[in-house]
């Protein structure tokens, strides 16, 4: 493989670079030096080795100017490379699955029998309050993380006219609104069919269409995140929100398990409901929600840890 001319002799192995080159290197941020310093010093040695005095001055002044530019770039926050955005995309997808699981939980506990048990048993009431509070915290964390990202995407789409953002964004929003509308209409229809027992066909249709909607929304979000330019400073600002979301998800998972166990000990019959067209208060659904929430929590925690490592790694590494 041809690498082009090898260049002049350069600095012999084991010998230090000339003082002026070492000084020029210190015009660059530390992270930059750790990534490019050695090869950059070798290039300076190559370029100045046989140059005239004027040539050396030109090379060194350009090197110092590059250092200033690197400092300005570091202060502005470098643009994150594509692979650095993966944890963010992973968390965005996890949030969608989490939202579906929470919606399923809300659906599961609807109906008067659950309200009666909640009023009669303090453990059920406390677990439900904790679940609601931690789910609220998770929603706040999602808002705190999503709002600046949404603003940046909007700005790049409208002001910078960055291509490739509008299509997936529109598809994702249309899918989310469309599926939510279908669920709302089905729920209204279900209200007219109380007492007919669970309709497996309707529940299955909603679940399959919901899974498809999640896949489309996940595609839309990951595509937008991949195509947007994400400044490193903004990415770092996302880390606290992601950490808060991870903790909230863990708390929601624990609260879900505690709530289900409390309900079962208070009135085991509640998890064998027969109270509507799309009746869902079944023990496997509760256990499934706990498994899904746990999986989503683990994925979010792992992605957050990866994001934190990427965000605070030395620049250029």
């Amino acid at each position: 493989m041809g690498r082009g001319p090898a260049g002049p002799e350069g600095t012999p192995a084991g010998q230090r670079d000339p003082l002026v080159i070492r000084l020029v290197l210190h015009a660059y941020p530390r992270g930059w030096r750790e990534r490019y310093g050695d090869e950059f010093a070798a290039l300076l040695v190559d370029l100045t080795g046989s140059a005239t005095f004027r040539g050396r001055v030109r090379v060194m002044s350009d090197a110092v100017r590059g250092g200033l530019t690197a400092w300005i770039g570091a202060a502005n926050g470098r643009v994150l490379p594509g692979h650095g955005k993966r944890p963010l995309a992973t968390v965005a997808c996890a949030v969608m699955v989490f939202a579906v699981a929470i919606a399923g939980l809300a659906k599961m506990r609807e109906g008067k029998p659950f309200d009666s048990v909640t009023r009669a048993h303090v453990t059920v009431a406390v677990a439900l309050d904790v679940l609601r509070a931690t789910a609220g915290l998770a929603a706040l964390a999602v808002l705190a993380g999503a709002a600046p990202l949404a603003w940046v995407v909007f700005r790049q789409m409208i002001v910078d006219r960055r291509p490739g953002l509008l299509g997936p964004l529109t598809a994702g929003l249309a899918t989310a609104v469309g599926w939510s509308g279908a669920v709302w209409i089905t729920a209204r229809l279900a209200g007219a069919h109380q007492g007919t027992g669970p309709d497996v066909l309707v529940v299955t249709a909603l679940a399959v269409s919901g899974a498809a909607a999640v896949v489309i929304c996940a595609w839309a979000v990951t595509t937008v995140i991949r195509r947007m330019q994400l400044p490193g400073r903004l990415f770092r600002a996302e880390i606290p929100a992601m950490a808060m979301l991870s903790l909230s998800m863990a708390a929601v998972t624990a609260a879900d398990v505690a709530w289900g166990l409390a309900v079962r000990s208070a009135d085991a019959g509640l998890f064998n409901s027969d109270n509507g067209l799309i009746s869902t208060p079944l023990a496997p659904n509760w256990a499934g929600s706990a498994v899904v929430l746990l999986a989503v929590t683990v994925v979010t925690c792992t992605a957050t840890a990866r994001a934190a490592r990427a965000a605070y790694a030395p620049a250029g590494s």
Binding site: M1, G2, R3, G4, P5, E39, A42, L43
Partner: peptide, 10 residues
């Protein structure tokens, strides 16, 4: 083809 810094400048 692949090149290092000095080869690129040349």
């Amino acid at each position: 083809g692949p090149k290092h810094g000095y080869a690129i400048t040349q």
